[in-house]
Design a protein around this nucleic acid. Structure first.
Length: 270
DNA sequence: CGCATTTGACCGGCGC
DNA sequence: GCGCCGGTCAAATGCG
């Protein structure tokens, strides 16, 4: 989990993002004050987004196409569940992923680790069996995961992870995702692809960044793998929800938009 | 033959 | 105390 604080919001360059409001603009002064407020807001929201992203154990698991509905019914107590407070890291995390054709028969979720199945059970609230896995890489590794097909959408696999790996991720033979990348590359990439998100001033643009600092790394290929349309959609949904629920942000946003409209629309249009 | 998976049995927590 | 249910164990089975 080393995201290195990459989620910081580039508020310092916020003014540069608003070239329309020059220093000589009549609205500039009041807008600058609003800008400062919004910048502070941005910092706060960036922290919240960081918390959201921190709850995602593996970008690829999401990239395999989660749906927003996943957040509702899985791992009731531990998932962020809309809360954005920076609480201590939960030890139980839930990941939703669309089952690939190769996964159809087995409740296998390719997450980069090697698992050994030790049980299967049909639960009360779901006609599909729940499979129980232990981390097979290190005998001492306490991590377990449960994988179960969603009762609502049978093409979805819901994986619940318990505990944290006490070893590095490697020696995963099944983690093959893309013919253009070698297995060795994928093992090196591991599950901790550096990922950052930033919202610039006024939330005009949202940047999702993949920072792969390894020399010679194929960042484009990695991004193509991780940043699927589904991933973008879920991310956007979460951001929108976050911003919508923030009255201060909405107030600042509407004020800024109103001021902008007033400035740009001359009084003698007709 | 060794290892992984399957599957029924068993155990413990929880609600009534 | 009892039954239900989720989670785990371990013998049986399958596969390479």
């Amino acid at each position: 989990m080393d995201r290195d604080g990459e989620c910081s919001s580039p508020t310092g360059s916020a003014a540069a993002l608003l070239p329309l409001f020059g220093p000589s603009s009549p609205a500039a002064e009041s807008l600058e004050e609003k800008l400062r407020r919004v910048s502070e807001e941005n910092r706060r929201l960036a922290g919240a987004l960081d918390a959201i992203l921190a709850d995602r154990p593996h970008p690829r698991a999401l990239a395999t196409s989660p749906t927003p509905s996943c957040h509702g019914n899985a791992a009731p107590a531990e998932v962020a569940g809309g809360g954005v407070t920076a609480e201590p890291r939960p030890k139980v995390r839930t990941v939703c992923a669309r089952a690939e054709p190769s996964d159809a028969d087995a409740n296998h979720l390719k997450d980069g680790y090697q698992w050994r199945k030790y049980g299967q059970k049909v639960t009360r609230d779901n006609p599909y069996p729940r499979a129980y896995f232990r981390c097979a890489y290190a005998p001492s590794c306490p991590v377990k995961k449960k994988v179960q097909r969603s009762a609502e959408d049978k093409s979805m696999l819901v994986a619940t992870y318990e505990g944290e790996h006490n070893h590095e991720q490697r020696a995963q033979s099944e983690y093959v995702t893309d013919a253009s990348t070698t297995q060795q590359q994928q093992q090196e990439a591991g599950s901790q692809l550096p990922c950052s998100i930033s919202i610039n001033s006024l939330g005009r643009t949202i940047t999702l960044g993949l920072m792969d600092q390894r020399p010679g790394s194929n960042a484009e290929a990695v991004a193509a793998e991780v940043i699927t349309p589904e991933f973008r959609k879920v991310l956007a949904d979460e951001i929108v929800e976050l911003l919508k629920n923030d009255s201060e942000f909405m107030e600042s946003l509407t004020s800024a938009v109103a001021a902008r409209v007033m400035e740009r629309i001359p009084g003698h249009i007709f």
